[in-house]
Simulated scan of single mutants.
Amino acid sequence: MTHHDHHIVVLGGGYTGMLAAIRLAHRTRRTGVRITLVNPSDRFTERLRMHQIAAGQQLADHHIPDLLAGTGITFVRGHATAIDPDRRTVVIDGGTATLEYDTLLYALGSSTDTSRVPGADSHAFTLNGPQEAARFAERLREIVVRGGTVTVCGGGLTGVEAATEIAETYPGLTVRLISSDEPGAMMGDAARAYLFRAMDRLGVTVRSGVRITKVLPDAVELDGGELVASDATLWTTGVRVSPLAGDAGIAVDERGLIRVDATLRSVSHPDVHAIGDAAAVRLAWGQIHGTCQSGLPTAQYAADSIARLLRGKRVKPFRFGYFHQPVSIGRRDAVIQFTHADDTPRRAYLKGRAAVLYKETVSSSPVKMFRLSKRMNVSATVSRGGRATRKPAA
């Protein structure tokens, strides 16, 4: 079957958008389907490694056109600034170009939200991209000569990885991790205890159970008014998504994520498929949260589903279960918490050198998967959730 008039537009060239586009190209080869990938930068960002750039490390430079070479995918460098779901068009860079689509794959992802706490947007750094991370690395090089203080705001896995990476790279700096929740709270007791011993060994000071109410040029203010001096503040807590879908009238939830059905299609516009951080995906055990671990399976599923729909075949509901929580603790240590499908911890965990090798395999796997997916269907799904995902969501 050929579809010479069918145009698929993929918005976003992150982990999910890249995998979905490349897998779609392989699944629809020789059918005449056209695929266009839109992304503001021609550089592929390895979000799993932003904390390494923040600590001053040089990473491999992957360019999207090179990763797409041989797939037949058209790459458009630009920002998607408007969607008209009725006319099925996407406006690029405010009107410099307009793309018509038959199927839209929405993979715009998310970024760290600095809007909720006064001063965070103007006085804190983020890991929202390689340029932002590199600016923070430059700030660290400025303050290390006088033994400055670094404050990492947020005790999620991103904050933990950033704090430990900085502490290991710059032992002369004072590194604080401030969080309203206990770092590693989602882990089991044994893995969390190991994480805390490692942070203590690296000299990371942890303050949990407190809330940051303001970020100043040289300090952060805690609830109660206490000022904590900070020469460089890194903000890693809170998530926001692009308002593009909601502004277009596509049904979204209270956070702006596209509301999807069991096949990851928009409940208001079925020709729009949403994946990764951009989609509100609810399974029987609950709603998945935005991680590469869950994002890549949504990309794989959406690509396969679109290919099946184009052939007139039935699509089964999306199934997924979490498997692990990999956390690097600098370059020479790590801890891997294995989990149940709903991301609650199992008893098993991995630590030390074996965990370092495991984490590096995880971090390097997406780019390898892109290259392999040009030639074969590579599975990104470690777990489909077992019995927990065999029944539909409530």
Results as ranks from 00 to 15, higher is better:
R30G: 13
R30H: 15
V33P: 02
V33F: 08
P40V: 13
D42R: 14
F44S: 00
L48V: 13
R49D: 03
M50P: 01
I53L: 12
G56A: 09
Q58C: 08
Q58G: 07
D61A: 09
D61M: 07
H62G: 02
H62S: 06
I64H: 01
I64L: 03
P65V: 07
D66H: 13
L67T: 03
L67F: 08
L68W: 05
A69K: 15
A69F: 13
G70D: 09
G72Q: 08
T74Q: 07
R77D: 01
G78Y: 03
G78E: 00
H79G: 01
H79Y: 12
T81E: 04
A82H: 10
A82V: 10
D84P: 04
D86H: 15
R87I: 11
R88G: 10
T89L: 13
V90L: 06
G94I: 13
G94K: 15
G94E: 06
T96S: 13
L99Q: 04
E100W: 09
E100R: 15
T103Q: 12
L104S: 04
Y106T: 04
Y106I: 04
G109I: 04
S110T: 02
S110M: 08
D113N: 13
S115R: 14
R116G: 12
R116K: 14
P118M: 09
P118I: 06
G119I: 06
A120W: 03
A120C: 07
S122F: 09
F125G: 00
T126H: 06
T126N: 06
P130M: 09
E132T: 11
E132F: 14
R135L: 13
R135S: 11
R135Y: 09
F136S: 03
A137H: 08
A137N: 05
R139P: 05
R141N: 12
R146M: 11
V150M: 05
C153A: 15
G154A: 10
G154K: 02
G155L: 09
G155E: 02
G156A: 10
L157E: 00
L157R: 02
T158L: 15
T158F: 04
G159V: 05
V160E: 00
E161K: 07
E161C: 11
A162S: 14
A163Y: 00
A163F: 03
T164K: 05
T164Q: 06
